[in-house]
Design a protein around this nucleic acid. Structure first.
Length: 237
DNA sequence: CCCTGCACTTCTTCGATACA
DNA sequence: TGTATCGAAGAAGTGCAGGG
């Protein structure tokens, strides 16, 4: 059982913002890597660590899997029209697609936060290790994910516990973003359909909240199917 | 002392180029 | 046109320093 983890460095939002802004103005890979290298030099002193961070950042937004190219393009276009908070949701979605490890960690966080306000870090790590193996690597990556989410303002550490920053669930209002995130969720979970309520409550998206999602999903992109008396299911067309 | 975060080293994969 | 080779980039593994 050796699943890839990959996400092993703390990543900051402004670094992700940077690459999103640069991609449209950059012709080739080398040029982009060069720009990113210079930009990261301000944050990260060690050469190798900087390369690691660059690897992660480019995997999220630039070296996107073939099957997610559409979502990537759409994301890049959406970016400039969103406010700071909603941009976080955009980055979040792209990371979920790029790093299953990240998705697993935030899912466990989301699940735990449903039950309790504060989650012991050790307990969470144990759970992740059960999925990825008991390796030092898993610890390093786990910390990287936690540190990143904390830096983005979603988490606070308190002793050995992690708590969600209360009342700070980001409201996703932009219609296109709601649809975009809905598709991301379907892809990340690798399912064809989901009950409507699930979108708002899914642990993988625990820092975000959608309003009046049903209207948004009633569009050319999705099919809404009624199942039984009061169950509606959403699937991609 | 140990834990945490950062950095360095090693192994693997991928892609470009050259040559048959 | 197909394949061998080589270098660059990615991912994992290991080491180490600083702070509690």
């Amino acid at each position: 059982m050796k699943k890839a983890v990959g996400f092993d460095q703390k990543i900051l939002l402004h670094q992700l913002d940077f690459i999103v802004k640069e991609i449209p103005f950059t012709d080739n890979r080398q040029e982009l890597y060069q720009k990113l290298e210079e930009y990261l030099a301000a944050d990260i002193a060690g050469t190798k660590s900087r390369l690691n961070a660059r690897t992660i950042i480019t995997k999220i937004w630039y070296r996107v899997d073939e099957e997610y190219r559409g979502l990537q393009q759409e994301g890049l276009e959406l970016y400039s029209r969103l406010n700071l908070e909603e941009r976080k949701a955009l980055h979040w979605g792209m990371i979920l697609l790029a790093y299953p490890f990240f998705a697993d960690v935030v899912k466990e966080l989301g699940v735990s936060f449903r039950l309790q306000e504060e989650v012991p870090k050790i307990q969470l790590l144990r759970k992740i290790k059960s999925l990825y193996g008991d390796r030092r690597r898993v610890e390093v990556a786990f910390d990287a994910v936690i540190a990143s989410i904390t830096a983005w303002g979603f988490l606070a550490s308190k002793g050995n516990g992690l708590r969600q920053i209360a009342g700070d669930r980001i409201q996703v209002q932009t219609s296109e973003l709601k649809r975009w995130l809905a598709e991301v969720l379907l892809r990340v979970l690798a399912v064809d359909y989901l009950p409507v309520e699930t979108f708002n409550e899914h642990p993988v998206l625990f820092p975000f909240r959608f309003y009046s999602l049903i209207e948004e999903l009633n569009c050319s992109r999705f099919n809404i199917i009624r199942q039984g008396v009061n169950m509606q299911v959403v699937c991609l067309r």
